[in-house]
Nucleic acid binder design. Structure first.
Lengths: 146, 146
DNA sequence: TATTGTTATACTCTATAACTATA
DNA sequence: TATAGTTATAGAGTATAACAATA
């Protein structure tokens, strides 16, 4: 650790904090409140499927950085609860695009509000810090390398 | 969504980005490279056990926001690989504190370097942005509510 | 009685490999 | 041949409840 450069040290600390934040905030997820009963990744999938924008299973697997085979079970469980639908694509009959059901869309909206309002301390940051955080994260996530 | 306030909207966006970042970066974890073969949460546990600072199982469960019963299995797997040790506490014989083995400490150091150097785009941020990110995340994580 | 940690159980998540259907 | 998605399998993560040992 002594030979670590400043930029390395900061990056390392940021990574640790991101992990800590992720694992620590799980108890604040709606999933823990019994009202929604969704796992963290299920919450995330609902976020990724924007209403009116069908999402191919393969795109979802890419975004989640997991194998396509995992997505099958994940979507099975969401579908069996009436939250999403597999919509076969007319152009390419191999592709199945995911859509929210009306119930899924309602739950997604509730999730978003709950997240913003109660489940995270993010909204208690100052406006400037919030904007900075969003910008940095956007840059990180959209960078292409991830 | 129309009725969502600005602060809510930002907090919501930040949450989505944090989730996206977490799930997307998994393929950049050392765990995926076969060299370490650790799951994300196992990597995180190694980070949380600082060399020379024994960590009670109950504290670990708290930090991970998961039930104590999960920690038993998690630690079992790390212990069976010779990375951590359960150290019975002399003061309170109910408590078992976790320590890194020499091998665990070496792996932890390698993990930290790998994280900083290759696995994340964090070190490619400008110095200012990196510092800001670290400060914001520290404030979030140390806030007490998580 | 309360707390620390374990065990048992059931379900979800994840990776790998083999497979089907379509391109 | 290559791609989208599924199935099968095994192991890891997670929540709940019941339990033993200690405080």
């Amino acid at each position: 650790m002594a030979a670590m450069h400043r930029s390395e040290h900061d990056a390392c600390r940021a990574w640790q904090l991101l992990m800590k934040f992720f694992f620590a905030q799980r108890e604040h997820l709606p999933s823990s409140e019994g009202e929604f009963d969704l796992s963290p990744i299920q919450c995330h999938v609902l976020h990724l499927i924007e209403p009116g924008r069908p999402l191919p299973m393969s795109r979802l697997a890419e975004t989640l950085s997991c194998d396509a085979s995992n997505v099958t079970g994940l979507v099975d469980r969401l579908e069996s609860r009436g939250l999403v639908r597999r919509q076969p694509s007319p152009e390419d009959r191999r592709v199945k695009a995911l859509q929210l059901t009306p119930r899924g869309a309602r739950m997604r909206a509730q999730l978003l509000r709950r997240m913003a309002r109660r489940s995270l301390p993010l909204s208690r940051l100052s406006r400037d810090k919030r904007r900075t955080l969003v910008k940095i994260l956007e840059a990180l996530v959209d960078e292409g390398s991830i």
